[in-house]
Simulated assay, not measured.
Amino acid sequence: MRFIKRPNDFLFHALVIVASVSLAVLSLLVIYSVVMRYVFDDAPDFVEPIALLLVIVIAMFGAALKVREGGHIGLDSLVTKLPPKGQVMAAAFQHLCLIALAVAIFFGCLQMAETTMEDRIPILGLPEGVRYCIPVVASVCIALFSLENLLALFVKKHN
């Protein structure tokens, strides 16, 4: 399991840092925007597109982090009533579904990123495809974390 656990540990900590910094920057941006708008009557126009990118980072990386921790939405009330083998099979099915979702997100967002890379985000001037690159990275993390959890199910079963 070390072959996947160690790289995923590094990836997990990197995502925690990026998501945490993004949340802090988003909070500061919102405070700055509110103060500028209501105190100085001078609303900065760059805050909204930056905030949107930060929200995408926080949501997508947060989702990946919860997959690693096993904190995603599940039907625990149903699964706990199953016999032990059924619980393992339900967890395996859940992780396979998450991997399938990650693959769909990866290819869908990769196609959107390629399609919109020539367009520019107004005010910022960044390629529009940047919005879709964030879920591409997150989907890879979701797939790796789900694979780790899936492998852990069967390593526990055989030990």
Score class of each variant (00 low, 15 high):
M89P: 01
H72I: 14
V21I: 14
F10E: 03
A64S: 15
K81L: 15
F61H: 01
A102T: 02
R37V: 09
L53V: 10
P83D: 15
L153R: 02
E148I: 06
V21W: 08
L101K: 03
F3V: 12
V103L: 15
R2D: 12
A138C: 05
I4F: 03
C109G: 02
S27Q: 07
A143H: 01
I56A: 06
R131A: 09
V47I: 15
E114P: 00
V103M: 13
L26Y: 08
V137K: 04
R68L: 07
F154Q: 10
H72A: 03
D45Q: 13
E118M: 15
E69G: 09
L110T: 05
T116Q: 04
L82N: 07
C133P: 00
D42V: 11
A100D: 03
L78E: 05
A64F: 08
A143D: 01
A64R: 05
F107E: 05
E118A: 14
L15G: 01
S22E: 04
F40D: 10
V130K: 02
D76A: 13
I73D: 04
G86W: 10
D42E: 14
V18C: 03
V47G: 03
S22K: 01
M36A: 12
A24Q: 05
L151A: 04
H95K: 12
P127A: 06
I105L: 13
V57Q: 00
L29D: 01
V79W: 06
V39E: 08
A104R: 06
P44Q: 08
V140M: 12
E128D: 12
F93Q: 09
G70E: 06
V57D: 01
A90N: 09
E148F: 06
M89R: 13
R120E: 11
A63S: 12
Y32T: 10
V16L: 06
F10H: 08
F61N: 01
E148Y: 07
Q94K: 12
A138P: 00
L101N: 02
A64N: 10
V103P: 00
I56S: 04
S27H: 05
P44E: 07
A104T: 10
S146R: 00
